[in-house]
Amino acid sequence: MMLWWVVDLTLCALMIALAAGSLFAATLRRRVIFFIAFGLLTAIVWARLQAPDLALAEAAIGAGLTGALLLAALPTAQPTEHKRDADRLIEWVSLLLAALLAVVLIAVLTTLLPVVDGDPSLAVTARLSDAGVSHPVTAVLLNFRAWDTLLELAVLLCATIGVLNLAPARKAPRHAGALADTLIRILLPLLILTAGYLLWNGAFAPGGAFQAGAVLAAATVVLHLGGGVRLPPFSLAQLRGLLALGLLLFLSVGLVQLAFGQALLQYPLAWAGSLILLIETGATLSIATMLSLVYLGGHPLRDWPVAGDSRDREI
């Protein structure tokens, strides 16, 4: 028991230190690097707190994708910042305020502890046999609270369309060299295999569409950073189809049930497992496409959203 206490204390202290680094380090570049380290540490903390699904997602999305995104967005020239005394004062006051708020929040939290098993988690375990999948987190995400997940896909779609509308994709960095190409050739099939494994695994163990999609998107990041290998060519229609696929499958499966007199998103028990796998497959492809596009920072094809169509300008 004592040993775990030491481990926990170390983890918490490291979390706070890395968070402080990524909030207050002198240059943006350092802050981004601290942030990536923070993300990796967070993944370890999730594993410690018995949340392996989150550990997978955090390593792939939180540290990996967000980190790559932030690194790519770093301005090339570092502006030198000089802080005036007034700014310093505001800084101290705000830090003081934050400390005060944190103390209040922690004090409030102590009134809540210990949080023990309540109704909902018991309810989840009790109904798990009707969910079609045996992994509780997947059951919550894809069955009990499927509406959340559906809207979350919509959030991701919305961000992606927003990104696509703004600008063409970032240019690939210069070619990283032959050794990197070799690594990419090894990694790429492994990443795709891992994604498939995570997707399949989600039904009964940690994993699922989000982790699988993120791993596939990581493959895009690797390809893009390598600079030597080109992304597979898509047509605009294919791109739009891939974007819409996950949500479309999800909604159609949900609505079809309505025709049989059941609730929206209610899967028949015998079919639940396969329907969830179907939805997750579509979602994985969509999530991978969307996260890749968000990372690339725009449309990879020149004529987003529709090629050569400005004929009715005169309206």
């Binding site: 990283a176 060299g177 050794l179 990197a180 070799t182 690594l183 090894i186």
Partner: peptide, 13 residues
């Protein structure tokens, strides 16, 4: 092994 080799090469490069 593979990735650290490549990383080392890239950083050195």
């Amino acid at each position: 092994l593979c990735s650290s080799t490549t990383n080392g090469y890239l950083i050195a490069h």
